[in-house]
């Protein structure tokens, strides 16, 4: 401390102090302020690369200016979150027409996805990609999540998120699969992809969205009762009762019956 105190009148002291203050303010801002979307912090170079990727991979359907057609949605104003969801889950670029775009291995890496998102976000403001903190299941409350899930999500995605059928071959996908990331779950709620409704922040608050993620993560740990049998409810239970239960017992009955004669 003495060495520091001795130099407090040094002519460079105000500069050092100013730097420290700026660092502290910037650090605090970075910690406390909601993280800006990658688009906001994206450099012009990212947007340019993103535009090139877009023209090469997406413009065929969405149009060179991303305004869409009668059958294809416009991407102006969908935001970076929608792009991140669709591209990181492999749904976009779409490979074939069907009742709905299906999940497949992502075609672009994280950097390219961010560049595409930056380009689309530059076309009009929309939901931004959530921060790691916003989607951290450890910070969420699974009990509140369960209640939110029950009233908003379970009618399509099944009680624990194992997925369910919609009309005409469309379906609500399973949320329990390992490649469904917490960030994608958040983005899906935020942007309402395909048949899914949008759950904006007034409808389900960001904290509640995190609670939902905590609830789904809780389900991935498996069931306390043993094999979850797909978490599909009574139909799969009935099937297993016939196959395993009655199957084994008929086997035993045949064995007992055969022992005599």
């Amino acid at each position: 401390m003495k060495a520091l105190a001795a130099r407090r009148h040094h002519r460079l002291a105000p500069v050092v102090l100013l730097l420290l203050a700026l660092l502290a303010t910037g650090g605090l801002y970075a910690l406390l302020a909601p993280s800006p979307a990658s688009a906001d912090s994206a450099s012009t170079q990212d947007i340019e690369t993103g535009e090139k990727l877009f023209q090469a991979n997406c413009a065929t359907c969405h149009g060179p200016s991303a305004t869409g057609t009668d059958d294809v949605p416009s991407l102006v104003g969908v935001g970076a979150a929608a792009v991140d969801f669709q591209v990181s889950s492999g749904r976009m670029p779409m490979q074939s027409n069907g009742p709905q775009a299906i999940r497949k291995p992502a075609q672009f890496d994280a950097e390219q996805t961010a560049q595409l998102a930056a380009y689309v976000a530059s076309l009009g403001t929309g939901p931004t990609v959530p921060t790691d903190e916003q989607v951290d299941p450890a910070l969420g409350d699974p009990a509140t999540g369960a209640a939110v899930f029950r009233t908003n999500c379970a009618m399509c995605h099944n009680a624990v998120g194992a997925g369910g059928a919609l009309s005409e071959g469309k379906f609500a996908p399973s949320l329990l699969e390992a490649d469904v990331t917490d960030r994608q779950i958040y983005e899906a709620m935020q942007t309402g992809p395909q048949s899914m409704p949008v759950f904006n922040d007034a409808n389900i608050t960001p904290e509640e969205k995190r609670d939902v993620i905590a609830y789904i993560e809780e389900q991935r740990d498996g069931s306390a009762g043993g094999l979850s049998l797909g978490s599909l409810g009574p139909v799969s239970e009935g099937l297993w009762a016939w196959v395993v239960g009655l199957g084994l017992l008929i086997g035993a009955a045949v064995w007992i019956g055969a022992k005599s004669s």
Binding site: M155, G233, A241
Partner: peptide, 16 residues
């Protein structure tokens, strides 16, 4: 979850 008349989850079926 506990019963409440409003929610119905996908895959709601009775025993076989």
């Amino acid at each position: 979850g506990p019963y409440d008349p409003s929610p119905v989850s996908a895959g709601a079926q009775p025993d076989w």
